[in-house]
């Protein structure tokens, strides 16, 4: 994961579930470009056309609830999103994202002030999220050390220490 991420935000509400992120009817697809076309389709049918590479998804509580499908973070990544910032994440989505090295950030305060199109900057080193449009700073909820180790390795299966434990 790079040290900083900068991008324009898209805002979604609480309890965005994996069926919305990538509907079950597409879960047999393997082509990343095809999956990307259907990202968030059942919430916003035009999302895949509107989203640009490097954009950030900002969401409320319990992002990624529902199905265990790992295609959810895979599809968000394939659609060009650089990171998801949420007030909280559903547990399987959280693990899946960490496992494939897709950046996720838990931040409880950034949501309420933000408007669609604001530019956000995430500094992983200092643990801050900045809404550069609104000129506001927020603290990231830090990963526990154990998870930080997986993140630094670039994913669960690249974490040699764990595989040999």
């Amino acid at each position: 994961m790079s040290k900083t991420i900068k991008g324009k935000i898209w805002k979604f509400k609480d309890n965005i579930n994996t069926d919305v992120i990538i509907p079950g009817r597409y879960c047999h697809l393997t082509d990343l470009n095809e999956l990307a076309k259907h990202c968030m389709e059942d919430d916003d049918p035009d999302f895949a056309k509107k989203v640009s590479s490097g954009d950030i998804l900002l969401a409320g509580d319990n992002f990624g609830c529902g199905s265990s499908r790992e295609l959810a973070p895979i599809t968000l990544k394939a659609a060009g999103l650089s990171c998801v910032i949420a007030k909280s994440f559903a547990r399987i989505f959280y693990r899946n994202s960490i496992n494939i090295g897709f950046p996720i950030v838990e931040c409880t305060q950034a949501y309420d002030d933000a408007s669609v199109g604001d530019t956000f900057e995430i500094d992983f080193k200092s643990g801050t999220v900045t809404n550069t449009t609104k000129k506001k700073n927020y603290k990231i909820v830090p990963f526990p050390d154990f998870i930080e180790q997986i993140v630094k390795s670039g994913g669960l299966l690249k974490c040699k220490d764990l595989l040999s434990q």
Partner: peptide
Amino acid sequence: DSHSVTYGAFGAAGIGIGSTDLVFAWVT
């Protein structure tokens, strides 16, 4: 599969996981 929690009906801890976790469990 997220509904692996169903095995709790038999006094077991059934835990839903994604496909990378599944591979980790396959190999370790």
